[in-house]
Computed example of a mutant assay.
Amino acid sequence: MSATGEVENDLRRRVENGEFQPGTRLPRLADLMAEYGMKSRSAMDRALRALVAEGLLTIRQGSGIYVRQRHVVQRDFIAGLRMEYAQAIRDEVTEGGLFEAMTGTKTEVSTSYELIDADSRVAELLKIEAGTPLLMRTFRYTINGLTHQVSRSMMSTDLAQAAGLSSPSSERPGVGTIMQLRRAGRTPNRAQIMLETRMPSTVERDQLDVGRGTPIYEHWRVLSQDGEPLEVSTALVPGDRVAYVLNVDLTAAS
Protein backbone atom coordinates (compact mmCIF):
# COMPACT_ATOMS: atom_id res chain seq x y z
CA MET A 1 0.00 0.00 0.00
CA SER A 2 1.23 3.49 -0.84
CA ALA A 3 2.15 6.00 1.84
CA THR A 4 -0.89 8.05 0.84
CA GLY A 5 -3.15 5.02 1.33
CA GLU A 6 -1.65 4.29 4.75
CA VAL A 7 -2.18 7.88 5.91
CA GLU A 8 -5.73 7.84 4.54
CA ASN A 9 -6.55 4.62 6.42
CA ASP A 10 -5.01 5.87 9.66
CA LEU A 11 -6.85 9.19 9.55
CA ARG A 12 -10.09 7.32 8.82
CA ARG A 13 -9.44 5.12 11.86
CA ARG A 14 -8.79 8.14 14.08
CA VAL A 15 -12.02 9.79 12.96
CA GLU A 16 -14.08 6.64 13.39
CA ASN A 17 -12.72 5.83 16.87
CA GLY A 18 -13.43 9.38 18.06
CA GLU A 19 -9.90 10.71 18.38
CA PHE A 20 -11.01 13.50 16.04
CA GLN A 21 -14.52 14.44 17.14
CA PRO A 22 -17.25 15.68 14.75
CA GLY A 23 -16.96 19.43 14.22
CA THR A 24 -13.31 19.64 15.26
CA ARG A 25 -10.58 20.96 13.01
CA LEU A 26 -7.75 18.68 11.96
CA PRO A 27 -4.14 19.74 12.57
CA ARG A 28 -2.59 21.93 9.90
CA LEU A 29 -1.33 20.22 6.76
CA ALA A 30 2.28 20.90 7.72
CA ASP A 31 1.72 19.37 11.17
CA LEU A 32 0.12 16.25 9.68
CA MET A 33 3.00 15.90 7.24
CA ALA A 34 5.47 16.08 10.11
CA GLU A 35 3.48 13.60 12.21
CA TYR A 36 3.36 11.03 9.39
CA GLY A 37 6.85 11.73 8.10
CA MET A 38 5.60 12.75 4.66
CA LYS A 39 7.65 15.10 2.51
CA SER A 40 5.14 15.42 -0.33
CA ARG A 41 2.45 18.03 0.25
CA SER A 42 0.45 16.72 -2.72
CA ALA A 43 0.44 13.16 -1.29
CA MET A 44 -0.96 14.37 2.03
CA ASP A 45 -3.47 16.51 0.19
CA ARG A 46 -4.63 13.44 -1.80
CA ALA A 47 -5.20 11.49 1.42
CA LEU A 48 -7.25 14.28 2.95
CA ARG A 49 -9.29 14.86 -0.19
CA ALA A 50 -10.10 11.16 -0.40
CA LEU A 51 -11.67 11.41 3.07
CA VAL A 52 -13.50 14.57 2.03
CA ALA A 53 -14.92 12.63 -0.93
CA GLU A 54 -16.09 9.90 1.47
CA GLY A 55 -17.92 12.48 3.54
CA LEU A 56 -15.80 12.02 6.67
CA LEU A 57 -14.14 15.42 6.38
CA THR A 58 -15.21 18.79 5.03
CA ILE A 59 -13.21 21.78 3.84
CA ARG A 60 -14.09 25.23 5.13
CA GLN A 61 -12.48 27.79 2.92
CA GLY A 62 -10.09 30.02 4.83
CA SER A 63 -10.48 27.96 8.01
CA GLY A 64 -9.19 24.43 7.45
CA ILE A 65 -10.34 20.83 7.28
CA TYR A 66 -12.92 19.62 9.79
CA VAL A 67 -14.51 16.33 10.77
CA ARG A 68 -18.03 16.42 9.37
CA GLN A 69 -20.85 16.64 11.86
CA ARG A 70 -23.62 14.12 11.31
CA HIS A 71 -26.88 13.71 13.15
CA VAL A 72 -28.73 10.63 11.93
CA VAL A 73 -32.50 11.09 12.21
CA GLN A 74 -34.88 8.13 12.13
CA ARG A 75 -38.07 8.77 10.17
CA ASP A 76 -41.16 6.63 9.71
CA PHE A 77 -43.03 7.88 6.64
CA ILE A 78 -46.30 6.11 7.40
CA ALA A 79 -46.43 7.06 11.08
CA GLY A 80 -45.51 10.66 10.21
CA LEU A 81 -48.27 10.96 7.60
CA ARG A 82 -50.85 9.48 9.93
CA MET A 83 -49.81 11.87 12.71
CA GLU A 84 -50.01 14.91 10.43
CA TYR A 85 -53.40 13.85 9.05
CA ALA A 86 -54.90 13.05 12.47
CA GLN A 87 -53.80 16.40 13.88
CA ALA A 88 -55.20 18.21 10.85
CA ILE A 89 -58.59 16.52 11.30
CA ARG A 90 -58.60 17.51 14.98
CA ASP A 91 -57.20 20.97 14.11
CA GLU A 92 -54.56 20.30 16.74
CA VAL A 93 -51.33 22.30 16.57
CA THR A 94 -48.20 20.44 17.62
CA GLU A 95 -46.02 22.31 20.07
CA GLY A 96 -42.46 22.52 18.80
CA GLY A 97 -43.30 21.66 15.19
CA LEU A 98 -44.22 18.55 13.20
CA PHE A 99 -40.64 17.51 12.41
CA GLU A 100 -39.78 17.42 16.10
CA ALA A 101 -42.98 15.51 16.91
CA MET A 102 -42.28 12.95 14.18
CA THR A 103 -38.57 12.41 14.86
CA GLY A 104 -37.93 13.55 18.42
CA THR A 105 -35.26 15.90 17.07
CA LYS A 106 -35.22 19.66 17.57
CA THR A 107 -34.60 21.71 14.44
CA GLU A 108 -34.44 25.28 13.29
CA VAL A 109 -36.51 26.00 10.18
CA SER A 110 -36.09 28.90 7.78
CA THR A 111 -38.74 29.54 5.12
CA SER A 112 -38.86 31.38 1.81
CA TYR A 113 -41.62 31.91 -0.77
CA GLU A 114 -41.22 32.17 -4.54
CA LEU A 115 -43.54 32.21 -7.54
CA ILE A 116 -42.39 29.71 -10.18
CA ASP A 117 -43.60 28.10 -13.39
CA ALA A 118 -44.29 24.38 -13.10
CA ASP A 119 -41.61 22.24 -14.70
CA SER A 120 -42.54 19.08 -16.59
CA ARG A 121 -42.30 16.68 -13.64
CA VAL A 122 -44.25 18.85 -11.22
CA ALA A 123 -46.84 19.57 -13.92
CA GLU A 124 -47.28 15.85 -14.52
CA LEU A 125 -47.72 15.13 -10.82
CA LEU A 126 -50.22 17.98 -10.37
CA LYS A 127 -51.96 17.13 -13.69
CA ILE A 128 -51.56 20.68 -15.00
CA GLU A 129 -49.88 22.32 -17.97
CA ALA A 130 -46.14 22.90 -17.76
CA GLY A 131 -45.48 26.58 -17.12
CA THR A 132 -48.53 27.02 -14.87
CA PRO A 133 -47.76 29.56 -12.11
CA LEU A 134 -47.24 27.97 -8.70
CA LEU A 135 -46.28 29.05 -5.21
CA MET A 136 -43.10 27.28 -4.10
CA ARG A 137 -42.31 27.31 -0.40
CA THR A 138 -38.78 26.29 0.61
CA PHE A 139 -38.07 25.02 4.11
CA ARG A 140 -34.50 24.56 5.30
CA TYR A 141 -34.13 22.39 8.40
CA THR A 142 -30.94 22.71 10.43
CA ILE A 143 -29.76 20.59 13.36
CA ASN A 144 -26.96 21.98 15.52
CA GLY A 145 -26.20 24.55 12.83
CA LEU A 146 -25.90 21.96 10.02
CA THR A 147 -28.45 21.73 7.21
CA HIS A 148 -30.29 18.43 7.56
CA GLN A 149 -32.95 18.76 4.87
CA VAL A 150 -34.19 21.16 2.22
CA SER A 151 -37.88 20.75 1.35
CA ARG A 152 -39.97 22.46 -1.30
CA SER A 153 -43.76 22.55 -1.44
CA MET A 154 -45.61 23.54 -4.62
CA MET A 155 -49.29 24.29 -5.18
CA SER A 156 -51.42 26.51 -7.39
CA THR A 157 -51.46 30.18 -6.54
CA ASP A 158 -55.26 30.07 -6.16
CA LEU A 159 -55.07 27.26 -3.62
CA ALA A 160 -52.25 29.00 -1.76
CA GLN A 161 -54.38 32.14 -1.55
CA ALA A 162 -57.35 30.14 -0.24
CA ALA A 163 -55.06 28.61 2.39
CA GLY A 164 -53.86 32.05 3.47
CA LEU A 165 -50.29 31.43 2.33
CA SER A 166 -49.14 34.87 1.25
CA SER A 167 -45.63 35.12 2.78
CA PRO A 168 -43.27 33.16 5.06
CA SER A 169 -44.92 34.86 8.03
CA SER A 170 -48.05 32.85 7.19
CA GLU A 171 -46.32 29.70 8.44
CA ARG A 172 -46.94 28.55 12.00
CA PRO A 173 -44.92 25.95 13.96
CA GLY A 174 -46.91 22.74 14.24
CA VAL A 175 -49.22 23.56 11.32
CA GLY A 176 -48.45 21.30 8.38
CA THR A 177 -49.59 21.37 4.77
CA ILE A 178 -52.46 18.94 5.35
CA MET A 179 -53.93 21.25 7.99
CA GLN A 180 -53.40 24.29 5.77
CA LEU A 181 -55.23 22.60 2.90
CA ARG A 182 -58.03 21.46 5.20
CA ARG A 183 -58.51 25.01 6.45
CA ALA A 184 -58.85 26.02 2.79
CA GLY A 185 -61.68 23.49 2.41
CA ARG A 186 -59.56 20.90 0.55
CA THR A 187 -58.76 18.02 2.89
CA PRO A 188 -56.38 15.52 1.27
CA ASN A 189 -57.46 11.89 1.57
CA ARG A 190 -54.54 10.26 -0.23
CA ALA A 191 -50.78 10.65 -0.19
CA GLN A 192 -48.33 9.18 -2.68
CA ILE A 193 -44.65 8.99 -1.74
CA MET A 194 -41.75 8.30 -4.10
CA LEU A 195 -38.27 7.78 -2.64
CA GLU A 196 -35.23 8.09 -4.89
CA THR A 197 -31.48 8.19 -4.40
CA ARG A 198 -28.91 9.99 -6.52
CA MET A 199 -25.71 11.94 -6.34
CA PRO A 200 -26.15 15.64 -5.53
CA SER A 201 -25.37 18.45 -7.92
CA THR A 202 -22.60 20.88 -7.02
CA VAL A 203 -25.17 23.40 -5.75
CA GLU A 204 -26.94 20.75 -3.67
CA ARG A 205 -23.64 19.51 -2.27
CA ASP A 206 -22.84 23.02 -1.06
CA GLN A 207 -26.36 23.55 0.32
CA LEU A 208 -26.27 20.33 2.32
CA ASP A 209 -22.52 20.27 3.09
CA VAL A 210 -22.02 16.72 1.83
CA GLY A 211 -18.88 15.06 0.56
CA ARG A 212 -18.41 14.16 -3.08
CA GLY A 213 -18.99 10.47 -2.40
CA THR A 214 -22.18 10.89 -0.37
CA PRO A 215 -25.52 10.29 -2.13
CA ILE A 216 -28.72 12.08 -1.22
CA TYR A 217 -32.29 10.91 -0.80
CA GLU A 218 -34.90 12.79 -2.78
CA HIS A 219 -38.43 12.01 -1.72
CA TRP A 220 -41.52 13.30 -3.45
CA ARG A 221 -45.00 13.52 -1.94
CA VAL A 222 -48.29 14.20 -3.70
CA LEU A 223 -51.33 15.11 -1.60
CA SER A 224 -54.66 14.50 -3.37
CA GLN A 225 -58.36 14.82 -2.68
CA ASP A 226 -60.58 12.27 -4.44
CA GLY A 227 -58.00 11.77 -7.16
CA GLU A 228 -57.24 15.47 -7.71
CA PRO A 229 -53.65 16.43 -6.86
CA LEU A 230 -53.49 19.43 -4.55
CA GLU A 231 -49.85 19.81 -3.61
CA VAL A 232 -46.46 18.36 -4.54
CA SER A 233 -43.47 18.47 -2.25
CA THR A 234 -39.91 17.27 -2.56
CA ALA A 235 -37.16 17.00 0.03
CA LEU A 236 -33.41 16.49 -0.23
CA VAL A 237 -31.61 14.73 2.64
CA PRO A 238 -27.98 13.53 2.76
CA GLY A 239 -27.87 9.75 2.77
CA ASP A 240 -25.71 9.61 5.89
CA ARG A 241 -28.05 11.74 8.02
CA VAL A 242 -31.31 9.78 7.90
CA ALA A 243 -32.60 6.26 8.50
CA TYR A 244 -36.02 5.59 6.98
CA VAL A 245 -38.28 3.13 8.76
CA LEU A 246 -41.62 1.68 7.70
CA ASN A 247 -43.76 0.02 10.37
CA VAL A 248 -46.71 -1.73 8.75
CA ASP A 249 -49.58 -3.51 10.50
CA LEU A 250 -49.95 -6.61 8.33
CA THR A 251 -53.34 -7.45 9.87
CA ALA A 252 -54.93 -4.11 8.98
CA ALA A 253 -55.97 -5.24 5.50
CA SER A 254 -57.18 -8.70 6.54
Rank of each mutant, 00 (worst) to 15 (best):
M83C: 02
E95D: 12
Q61W: 07
E100V: 06
M83D: 11
I116S: 10
R60H: 14
E100D: 08
G96F: 12
H71D: 09
S112E: 15
T58V: 15
A86W: 10
R90K: 14
K127Q: 14
K106A: 14
R121D: 14
I89Q: 15
E129R: 09
M102K: 15
R75T: 08
F99D: 00
E114G: 03
R75P: 00
V67G: 08
V73D: 01
I89W: 02
I59A: 04
G80M: 01
E95G: 02
A123N: 03
A118M: 05
E124L: 08
G80T: 12
F77Q: 06
D76A: 04
R75G: 03
Q61H: 12
H71W: 11
L81W: 10
E92P: 00
L115M: 07
Q61S: 13
L115N: 11
V73F: 00
S110Q: 07
S120H: 09
G64K: 06
R90T: 05
G97S: 10
L57N: 04
E114Y: 08
R68F: 04
T107N: 01
S110C: 00
E129N: 08
L57T: 09
A88W: 09
S120W: 07
L81H: 13
S110K: 06
K127D: 06
H71P: 12
G55R: 09
R75H: 09
T58I: 13
R70V: 14
E100H: 13
E114H: 09
R60I: 11
D76W: 01
S110P: 00
G104E: 05
L56H: 04
T94G: 03
F77P: 06
V73C: 05
A88D: 11
Y85T: 12
A130H: 08
T103C: 02
G104T: 07
A101C: 05
Y66N: 09
V122E: 11
R90V: 03
F99H: 05
A88E: 10
E108N: 14
T107F: 01
G80A: 12
V67K: 10
G97T: 11
T103R: 03
S63D: 12
E124T: 08
V67A: 08
G55N: 06
M83W: 05
I89N: 10
V93W: 03
G96C: 07
A130D: 08
L98D: 03
T111E: 11
V72S: 02
I89M: 11
R121I: 04
Y66M: 13
L115A: 13
